[in-house]
Computed example of a mutant assay.
Amino acid sequence: MSNGPYGQTTCRCGAVSLLVCGAPLALGRDAGGEPVSFWPLVAIQLGQGADELEVSPSGTGGDAWQCRRCAERLLLAHDDDDLAVLAEQEGADEIAPALTPVQQRWLEALGYRVAAGE
């Protein structure tokens, strides 16, 4: 991780936290209309709760990272595309628009709407 801007996301019960560094590649909405952000996997690090983190196949070709205690999903990771989908972070107003067309089509095929300049 770099020394650039960073943030933290924590599950509901506080057992697992993730650190994110830099700016998201893009913002968008999931299939249910909830705001999400798209990040390179290298920008995300486990902050705490390694023993409480469960990583399992998501059915979309990626892995869901969730808390064993409260079952909240924190992240959907796609190793092959070096891409992660997180719930929208407070203050994520700086965007590094770097999704490739292939990544954008793939996200849209999964039901995500990628926001243009949002």
Rank of each mutant, 00 (worst) to 15 (best):
S2W: 00
G4A: 15
P5N: 13
T9H: 01
C13K: 06
C13I: 05
G14R: 03
A15C: 09
V16L: 06
V16E: 11
C21Y: 07
C21R: 13
G22N: 01
A23S: 10
A26M: 02
A26I: 00
L27C: 08
D30F: 04
A31N: 08
A31R: 15
G32Y: 07
G33L: 02
E34C: 10
S37V: 02
S37W: 01
A43I: 00
Q45R: 14
L46F: 11
Q48L: 07
D51S: 15
D51A: 13
E52G: 09
L53W: 07
E54P: 00
S56E: 12
S58R: 07
G59T: 06
G61K: 12
D63M: 09
W65R: 12
C70N: 06
R73H: 05
A77T: 09
H78P: 03
H78L: 08
D80N: 12
L83W: 09
V85Q: 06
L86I: 04
A87E: 06
Q89Y: 04
E90H: 02
G91F: 04
E94V: 13
E94S: 13
A96K: 14
A96H: 11
A96Y: 07
P101Q: 10
V102S: 15
V102Q: 12
Q103W: 06
W106M: 14
W106P: 00
L107D: 07
L107K: 06
L110K: 13
G111D: 00
Y112F: 15
R113W: 09
R113E: 13
R113P: 11
V114K: 02
A115M: 09
